[in-house]
Nucleic acid binder design. Structure first.
Lengths: 116, 116
DNA sequence: CCGGAATATGTGGCAAATGATATATACTGC
DNA sequence: GCAGTATATATCATTTGCCACATATTCCGG
């Protein structure tokens, strides 16, 4: 859909904004990484990811047991620019900076490194 | 306040986004100009302007009978950039383009031209 | 002080978002 | 097919947001 006010409505919730910031920075993350990074219950993360998915801001693809999310590849240029500007503007403040630290310190991350 | 998710939540409503876009383009507008541009009831506009004011997006000042609103001068640089990017991205699509046209065609506009 | 114009706020009802918890689904390895 | 892990969805209670309408407030001119 990509309706402008729906973009901001989606960003207008702390959990979704934190998720999108991590995805914008890391490129692609599975649900358990987001759950660990934000330190929230898994259903909470899944619900907000579903919200972002239905609004068209993220895409998901399953890979075995894990479902990976990333910022949608079909966004208008101005939307990508808004996301990038926002990420740069808030990445060093709470709670976003802490999310990145927690994610970086997460043990047994799945993915390319084959730790799981 | 300028808490990121509160800023975005304020934009997450069509009426408020349309108001903010007109303000971003025109610099300063009174309530009756916004009411005419969006073609909505005055209490609707006032209510959403109050929402934007409380979120920190706009400032108002009274000048006689009219109350003028403008984009707040104390927004962080990245927020102003998000707003400018958004405005440029959506200004040519509905309903935003129509709002600008209606505002431009409004008769008896108050302000510097002293028409009222 | 009074009437009228511009703007703001109060109220009631209702739809939608949220949070916490429980449960269902999808996949892997055996 | 079974057990276990990862993820998604259902449910319920609560809160929040919104709309339409009525009314209040602020200000100006006379």
């Amino acid at each position: 859909m990509h309706i402008p006010e729906q973009l901001f409505a989606a960003l207008g919730h702390e959990v979704r904004l934190r998720c999108l910031l991590l995805l914008q920075r890391e490129g692609e993350l599975c649900v358990c990484e987001l759950t660990h990074g934000l330190d929230l219950a898994q259903p909470t993360i899944s619900r907000h990811l579903a919200h972002l998915r239905e609004a068209g801001w993220v895409e998901d693809h399953r890979q075995g047991l894990w479902v990976y999310y990333r910022v949608s590849s079909r966004l208008p240029a101005w939307v990508r620019e808004v996301l990038a500007t926002t990420a740069a503007g808030i990445v060093n403040s709470a709670p976003f900076a802490g999310d990145l630290l927690r994610l970086g310190a997460m043990p047994n991350r799945p993915g390319a490194r084959g730790c799981a």
